[in-house]
Write a protein that binds this DNA or RNA. Structure first.
Length: 477
RNA sequence: CGCGGGGUGGAGCAAUUGGAAGCUCGUCAGGCUCAUAACCUGAAGGUUGCCGGUUCGAGUCCGGCCCCCGCAACCA
């Protein structure tokens, strides 16, 4: 049963480079997208970069570049990283693109027309040195740490989104799972946010220059978060190509890490309701990484560059290592020393070696390949499929790798290398069976390890299977 | 009492609605030799943070306590 499937990652802020966190979300989305494509669904997989706002402008200035130049460079870094990781997205949206601005303007105008936006005043601490609002949290001894000066309390005229008007509806949608929020802890957290008091929020900035002007007040720029969320609809033609938009909306799954839950679970559905569109079907929130027990972050300088992982383990290896280690949806601690261990144990010794020994035996005994169905129990296949549908990606992998172990056991039990030519028939039968299972495993593993999967399928579709170079060469620690 | 997550054999993690505590790595002992010094079999190793409660039965529910971590207007 073919269907349409729209999946998104957050668009990543250009203030930072790609790191394991962003890579994790993106790989997971790619796996799910590939899985759907493999079963014949029509898929739209969106990712991109969030490029406006004071921070981006500041970073550009620091780098001595124009915001346009700077953001283009960072966007390219993301595209390169995703290419290296073999991410097959259908679209990469940049919020500085015209198509985005067009949709956003329509969206904002409609909010205004629907009386979801009103004029008010925004009050905050403003540091003249930084030329931006800073939060109390950022203060050191009541002063801006960068400029060592006390920020001024400033009021600026802003436009506000009437969030409070939509809160009851959004809460109900979450409670009834019309917006599914998973894992369930995150649903509880989202519902908890309502109790903490949510207020209307400002959707524009007067002081910020780097952004999209409000369509009904060009002196103001749209608050970057508001406009960023709208990428999910602008990329599919909101306000521009209605048919295309409704072909994909509402989105099936939005993946993200837990820090942006509030924006996606509450603000975003509220804004959609305000313009008369449906809320997302599902928001799936995964956890954070810590690295060797410490919080990952630029300030600690312990981020891991996914490109380095690809260089060391290959794209399949990097994808596997990130997805296999922790339950998708929970926090996990990355121990870099375990990467090599895991790679060797599962990919080199497990899948890679199984492929080698099977191919070698096939070649050695010149076994004629057949494309028969393998003897893998269908309930196991179903378990794997449903694990992927539930986004229990690590479980799906675990179950697939159990199948690999089974073939190894089977080979050992039958020991075809001990059979002499009087048993040639039996020997060929065993090996054909192994080959069929390897082929099936290759298909199962495709969303996770697309390159290895393709190689195995090609190798094992020949009438005479030959041994080839190792899929995953062992890495010396 | 701001919100949320977590504390399980040496290490990293699992345990759908409460019911014989599993997996991977590592360690030790065998086996095999087709394979990437790989693969297979077996063993050792846990009073599931602490205390109390509910129950025929709790890692799993309830109460209290002790630690660790994340979030609280913009780093996934």
């Amino acid at each position: 049963m073919s269907k349409r499937f729209y999946i998104t990652t957050p668009i990543y802020y250009v203030n930072d480079r790609p790191h394991v966190g962003t890579a994790y979300t993106t790989i997971a989305a790619d796996v799910v997208a590939r899985w759907h494509r493999q079963r014949g669904d029509e898929v739209f997989f969106l990712t991109g970069t969030d490029e406006h706002g004071a921070k981006a402008a500041e970073s550009a200035a620091k780098a001595g570049k124009s915001p346009e130049e700077f953001t283009a460079e960072i966007a390219q870094l993301f595209q390169l990283a995703w290419k290296n990781l073999n991410i097959k997205y259908d679209d990469f949206i940049r919020t500085t693109e015209k198509r985005h601005a067009r949709s956003v303007e329509k969206f904002m105008q409609l909010l205004k027309d629907n009386d979801a936006i009103y004029k008010g005043t925004y009050e905050g601490l403003y540091c003249v040195g930084c030329e931006k609002f800073i939060t109390e949290k950022e203060l050191v001894d009541g002063k801006c740490p960068l400029h060592n000066r006390v920020p001024e309390k400033i009021k600026e005229k802003n436009y506000f989104f009437r969030l409070t008007k939509y809160l009851d509806t959004v809460r109900r949608l979450i409670e009834t799972d019309e917006i599914v929020i998973e894992p369930v802890e995150r649903k509880k957290e989202a519902l908890g946010l309502f109790q903490q008091g949510l207020e209307d929020f400002s959707v524009s900035r007067e002081k910020v220059k780097w952004g999209i002007p409000l369509p009904f007040d060009s002196k103001q720029v749209i608050y970057v978060w508001v406009e960023a969320l709208q990428n999910y609809v602008s990329a599919i033609g909101y306000g521009d190509d209605i048919d295309r938009f409704h072909r994909w909306w509402p989105v099936d799954v939005q993946l993200m890490a837990k820090d942006i839950l509030k924006f996606h679970a509450i603000y975003w559905p509220a804004m959609l309701l305000a313009v008369g569109e449906k809320a997302p079907k599902k928001e799936f929130i995964h956890g954070f990484f810590s690295i060797n027990g410490k919080k990952m972050g630029k300030s600690l300088g312990n981020t891991i560059d996914p490109n380095d992982m690809v260089e060391k383990f290959g794209s399949d290896g990097a994808r596997y290592l990130l997805l296999s280690q922790f339950p998708f949806g929970q926090d996990g601690d990355i121990q870099e020393s375990r990467f090599v261990e895991k790679y060797n144990a599962d990919l080199a010794n497990g899948l890679g070696n199984l492929v080698s020994r099977t191919a070698n035996l096939m070649e050695k005994y010149a076994v004629e390949n057949s494309m028969t169905d393998p003897g893998i129990a269908s309930d196991k296949i179903e378990e794997i499929e449903s694990a992927i549908q539930e986004l229990s990606l690590e479980n799906a992998l675990k179950k697939i790798f159990q199948l690999i172990a089974e073939v190894n056991k089977y080979l050992d039990a039958e020991s075809p290398w001990k059979m002499d030519d009087s048993q040639a028939e039996k020997r060929a039968e065993v090996l054909r069976d192994c080959a069929a299972r390897v082929r099936r495993i290759a298909r199962l593993v495709y969303p996770f390890l697309p390159i290895a999967s393709r190689r195995i399928e090609r190798q094992f579709s020949e009438s005479l299977v030959k041994k080839e170079d190792p899929l995953f060469p062992r890495i010396q620690a």
